[in-house]
Write a protein that binds this DNA or RNA. Structure first.
Length: 824
RNA sequence: GCGAGAGUGGCGGAAUUGGCAGACGCGCUGGACUUAGGAUCCAGUGGUGAAAACCGUGGGGGUUCAAGUCCCCCCUCUCGCACCA
């Protein structure tokens, strides 16, 4: 064995050996329990960055650990290949998005291979390859056939400079992420997926997600935004029409003193057209138009509005209240119209104050009185209903939840309703580098789906990437013009592509059967492998990807294509690697890539170091200063095994089983195996590594003091165990050391070591003696010492006697195996 | 404003259930070996103090024999949502 640890030689050697032998290949084995470990696949934007390493380390340690514990592990890797950056690169530098993407995939894959991750590369997939997106299109058709995909006009985020619709996440504070242009709202014909049909189930089924972090569930719950309330119909005095509002506080209906419409509400036009108010309303709207999304929705924006010279009739008391239009009423939520109860709603209160509109108190707090003249804020709490006709004296909670809704229903004035904030998912993108939507428009037949046999609708290679004008697909006649699949006549293809989140909403299923050319996935394969047992990824996907994937899974479940209705049983959201507290970004130029560290320290050191930075869920401040420590540790490990092999060649003194040091070494071995195992189980990888470091330090001391210890079966076990438990963290060096000590190839296929609970327990413990809760003495005692003896020992200690002297002992508390506290 | 999480040495972080605060690592100090050290090894390293001892987990109260951990109040930071009727 070489004396010095030469990581580059070792890592090169085993990387190719493992790949030749395909040791991480997995296949379905119904006799065998499975674990599906998945880390969110990356968008290939270039070489790996340190965040990738932090992420994929976690999955790799778990995959290796479970495989060693007898599980049949699926641990795949692929590429989220479609997306804007590739197309932007094409516009900027003329490189074709396909070329850009595949080049980046190669760079990223090279890094992941060097890091030694245990992927079954035979399952590699890329969402931008036709054999994948063919099935994305097929799924779109399934959605369409089942009424879950539809086309509608909608206001979308439109960047006038990029001439494309942007996803919400591509709009930063109202400006285009790419060119910093103010994003407009533009009415466009768009494709939607009907996620709102699943709002209730997406919400309810969160109960099943016991293995998800609470904060992700909270974010999803917020996003879905369910409100229970009532729809109430008001009559417009001037036109006689009925207009519904949504409220969560029907118990405050008697406190309505005015009525509000969103500025773009169509009724605003009908009420003001041709009147002298028309100009005022027009100006009002124009003023709002010039503002960004942020300026419009910030909480501190002053409320303003225009009185429309019209009245709404409150059904419960027949009162006529003025109708206003107001900047804070949203057209998108509810009906775009609201009743205003200034005494019990802070927004209405502020509006009323500004325009001197009346307040009427209808909820009397349980304690105290409300005076409309002196109130400086709305009272939004519960209380006793007053000024509310036959409901006077009723508890507002009861009024809100049962009595008033019932009353409205009986009189036909309204009914209970549930509202969600969740909107349907707009998936159209006027972009080239995405999945073509498999739809054809025929003058005669209308919207026609591309038949399954004609899938995939291929992206044409030869297109123009001018940054202006229609999208490349729209410009490509060769793509656009086609024959109607139904009548054979002239027709045009849909030229929008799908949001890339569609691609990633089902990739975890495809991994179970990635080479299937006949179907999206084989039922037998997915029945065995899915759902994903442990999903790992960044918190930034808490809503988007994770909600979309849940939605897709539920749709597939309803279509009887899969038997599970939640895709990810357990979720681990790892923190970001940050610099100066902020996310690393290309624009700041502070992206750390593993490349340089791989060159100077090797993959094992880097893997170890990043795991050692802290717990997975916490954000980690990047600093290189500790990496030397991990590098030194691996050198120590190497030297330990080197010395071990040398000891074996010496004629050593015999060691007897009674040898205290031998016993201690055995104890350390079992104890370390136990601690490391439990730490991995609870994802506490930093402490697992710390335990192994400690163990290596202890073994080094033993080797110094009593080398002959290692010429025993127990000595062998100690060294073996160390290598076996370090292997998931530092796979290369462990494979090398394992082979040096004559272990069977591969160390990564060796069973995980077990421990004996008795051996893991210490033989002796340090008993702490406290006086009045302060540590005054420590005694080394047998671990199984009786409480009685502990007490005697404590009281007998000369140091303790000195402290107590002749003072009265009030109480003695004995915590078995730990401490004695003497109260005086 | 609402919701979630966090605050521990010079630094990253330990401390399954209330039971020795600071494991492990970085950094630092001293020493050994060296032509040399950015290699390696040994010792030390929360603060004050000569020592005994005292003080120490954001701040203030409390419960308890015993509190980083439990309860109450407050402060700071991070993240998410944010005029959703």
């Amino acid at each position: 064995m070489q004396e010095k640890y030469d990581f580059s030689k070792i890592e090169d050697k085993w990387m190719s050996r493992w790949e030749e032998d395909n040791i991480y290949k997995t296949s379905r084995d119904p006799e065998h329990k499975k674990k599906y470990i998945l880390v969110m696949f990356p968008y290939p934007s270039g070489p790996a960055h340190i965040g990738h390493v932090a992420n994929y380390n976690l999955g790799d340690v778990l995959a290796r650990y479970y495989a060693r514990n007898g599980w049949n592990v699926l641990h795949p890797m692929g590429w989220d290949g479609f997306g804007l950056p590739a197309e932007n690169a094409a516009i900027r530098s003329g490189v074709h998005p396909a070329r850009y993407t595949w080049d980046n995939i190669a760079l990223l894959k090279r890094d992941l291979r060097r890091l030694g991750y245990s992927y079954d590369w035979d399952r590699e997939l890329a969402t931008c390859s036709p054999d994948y997106y063919k099935w994305t299109q097929w799924l779109f058709l399934k959605f369409y056939e089942n009424g879950l995909a539809y086309k509608a006009e909608a206001k979308a985020n439109w960047c006038p400079s990029c001439r494309t619709v942007l996803a919400n996440e591509q709009v930063i504070n109202g400006y285009c992420e790419r060119c910093d242009t103010l994003v407009e709202k533009k009415l466009l014909d768009q494709w939607f997926l009907k996620i709102t049909d699943y709002a209730e189930r997406l919400l309810e089924d969160m109960e099943k997600l016991k293995g998800w972090p609470e904060r992700v569930l909270v974010m999803q719950r917020n996003w879905i935004g369910k409100s229970n309330g009532c729809k109430v119909f008001f009559k417009v005095k001037e036109t006689g029409e009925t207009i519904g509002i949504f409220t969560t506080r029907p118990d405050t209906l008697w406190g309505v003193t005015f009525f509000l419409l969103a500025p773009e509400h169509p009724l605003v036009d009908r009420l003001t057209k041709g009147t002298k108010l028309e100009k005022e309303v027009f100006d009002f709207r124009e003023r709002l138009k010039g503002k960004t999304e942020i300026e419009l929705t910030a909480l501190d924006v002053e409320k303003e509005g225009v009185f429309l010279n019209a009245y709404a009739i409150n059904p419960v008391n027949g009162e006529e209240v003025p109708i206003w239009t107001a900047n804070f009423v949203l057209m998108e939520y509810g009906t775009g119209a609201v009743m205003a109860v200034p005494a019990h709603d802070q927004r209405d209160f502020e509006f009323a104050k500004k325009y001197s509109l009346p307040l009427r108190v209808v909820i009397k707090p349980y304690e105290g009185e409300l005076d409309p003249e002196t109130m400086d804020a709305a009272y939004e709490g519960e209380g006793i209903m007053i000024n509310s006709g036959l409901f006077d004296g009723l508890d507002s909670l009861e009024g809100k939840e049962s009595r008033v809704p019932q009353y409205l229903e009986e009189n036909g004035w309204g009914h209970r309703e549930v509202n969600y904030r969740l909107r349907d998912w707009l998936i159209s993108r006027q972009r080239y580098w995405g999945v073509p939507i498999p739809i054809v428009y025929c003058d005669k037949c209308g919207i026609v789906t591309v038949p399954e046999k004609d899938l995939p609708v291929l992206l044409p290679e030869d297109v123009d990437f001018f940054p202006e004008g229609p999208s490349p697909l729209e410009r490509s006649e060769q793509f656009r013009l086609t024959a109607c699949p139904s009548c054979g006549g002239r027709a045009e293809r849909e030229t929008d592509t799908m949001d890339t989140f569609v691609d990633s909403s089902w990739y975890f299923i495809r991994f179970a059967d990635p080479r299937n050319e006949k179907e999206a996935f084989n039922k037998g394969e997915i029945d065995y492998w899915l759902p994903v047992d442990q999903y790992i990824g960044g918190i930034e996907h808490a809503i988007l990807h994770l909600l979309y994937s849940r939605f897709f899974t539920k749709v597939l479940y309803d279509l009887k294509l899969v038997d599970f209705d939640e895709p990810f049983t357990n979720l681990l959201c790892q923190g970001m690697v940050v610099m100066g507290g902020a996310k690393m970004s290309k624009s700041k130029g502070n992206i750390i890539t593993p490349g340089e560290f791989l060159d100077s320290y090797g993959a094992d050191t880097l893997r170890l170091f990043i795991l050692f930075l802290g717990p997975p869920e916490a954000d980690k401040e990047w600093s290189e200063s500790g990496i030397e420590g991990c590098y030194r540790f691996l050198h120590r490990v190497w030297r330990l095994v080197y010395r071990y092999l040398n000891i074996l060649t010496l004629k050593a003194n015999p060691v007897t089983e009674e040898d205290v040091l031998l016993k201690e070494m055995v104890h350390w071995t079992h104890r370390t195996v136990k601690q490391v195992t439990l730490d991995i189980e609870r994802f506490s990888f930093n402490t697992a590594i710390a335990r192994i470091m400690e163990f290596v330090n202890v073994l080094g001391k033993f080797m110094e003091e009593a080398p002959s210890l290692f010429n025993t079966y127990e000595g062998r076990k100690a060294v073996e165990s160390m290598i076996l438990i370090l292997a998931p963290f530092a796979p290369f060096i462990c494979e090398e050391l394992w082979s040096e000590i004559g272990g069977d190839y591969s160390v990564h296929q060796q069973p995980w070591p077990t421990w004996d609970e008795n051996m893991a327990k210490a033989e002796t413990i340090t008993m702490v003696i406290q006086v009045n809760g302060k540590v005054r003495d420590r005694v080394e005692v047998e671990a199984d010492i009786k409480p009685q003896e502990m007490e005697e020992l404590a009281l007998g200690s000369s140091r303790i006697k000195q402290i107590i002297q002749d003072r009265q002992i009030k109480k003695v508390i004995v915590v078995p195996g730990k401490l004695v506290n003497i109260v005086i």
